[in-house]
Design a protein around this nucleic acid. Sequence first.
DNA 1: TTTGGTCGGATTGCATACAATTCGTTCATG
DNA 2: CATGAACGAATTGTATGCAATCCGACCAAA
Lengths: 235, 235
Amino acid sequence: MRHSIIEPVEAPAEDRAAVIRDHIRNAIVDRRLGPGTKLSEQEVGALFDASRTVARAALQMLSFEGLVRTERNRGAFVANPTPAEARHVFASRRVIEPGIAADACARIGPDDIARFEAQLADESRYLALRGPEARRSEIKASGDFHLLLARVAGNPILLRFMEELVARSSLVIALYGRTGASTCGHSEHQEIAAALSAGDAERAGALIMRHIDHIEADLDLNHKGSTALRDAIAV
Amino acid sequence: MRHSIIEPVEAPAEDRAAVIRDHIRNAIVDRRLGPGTKLSEQEVGALFDASRTVARAALQMLSFEGLVRTERNRGAFVANPTPAEARHVFASRRVIEPGIAADACARIGPDDIARFEAQLADESRYLALRGPEARRSEIKASGDFHLLLARVAGNPILLRFMEELVARSSLVIALYGRTGASTCGHSEHQEIAAALSAGDAERAGALIMRHIDHIEADLDLNHKGSTALRDAIAV
DNA sequence: TTTGGTCGGATTGCATACAATTCGTTCATG
DNA sequence: CATGAACGAATTGTATGCAATCCGACCAAA
């Protein structure tokens, strides 16, 4: 009944650009769109039955999130992070996530714990499956864990920062990931959730830190940086 | 001569929307545009001799930064942060800035130290002046100190986050600031810079934390939250 | 084969026209 | 006087047209 006053009965003419943005972002995070893929305004618009204006707005949003790189008079492309950018992403996560874990620890409640359990169950399920499709879902779920953590922390600003960082991490892993170290990640997620449930903020922070270390250690961030002239002389 | 290859001789047809965005952002941070001010697309466009399309793009950027709130079919307004949002801003800074200070400590060099000194000198200069004009410059310079810190840290992602947080802080201070506690802030900036120069990351982090505490303590975040029905029943 | 130049298609940047929505005003009614 | 409906001005949401720009194909010359 509590919906009757606030929530409109029908869809409130949702922002179409945001819908397009969400679809494309999911496609990028799920690796259905590889780094470097061209995203033409006309094509995107046609795909969602919208004009270039709306498609352009969606691409602009994605460009703010760092998932899409736009070049003037050339168009928008799925971002192709350099190793340096990849390191920046993880350095940012090292700065932010321990603090988020501490906040989450202070605010976590029974229903949050239930959400964590559901999340971990999802991860286990995907982990059991095989094939590229399952692997994509697994990466997605792994990111969702960190977003759940941020949501529990209860700070919308930090949540938005984490959304950006998690999405960019997916791109980085797609580009530089070596193996399925995500299996190792799952048990770490369990430990983190346990520390949170126990209210041990310090331990949760330390575990998160180690977890990020492990994710980054599984990347191959050397010599892939395309020794192109362009990068060599880049200012 | 090193400019001859990379940098174009003429201005490279800079993005006009970004120019508009920067102007409006400065106006907001400098308090020339107060919270709640309507920013009509037509007016903004006319002011910069551009069409609504470009003005709209600029407003969209500012909306992503949290400086402008857009309501569908109603338009864009300078953000009017609630006390809760204000607390989120400072909570985010508490999470991020100590980490930035640590990174800055690890990378700081002689030229950076010189920049800090120049920055502190600027602050002193504005502090000596009187009048609302001087006070605006003072607030701006105070924010610039934190941005310089983030720039020295060398992580573009965290720098962008800090740009957003500093800008929103200005709004919050404009709304809820009590007195000129910024004077107290200046000596703290000096201490922080000293700790950085000495390479004492731990002390720098602790000082930053206390500094943020002091800034927030000078705010009056109670009972100003407009006990409007709208907020009372907000989901 | 490689280098340099020109042309044409395709795409973006921007301005503008039209449709949809909102809000203040006016006015009729209880 | 208070309430509510209806109208109209103003503003935003969206589509589309035109000019500017870029890129690849093609071709000529060394």
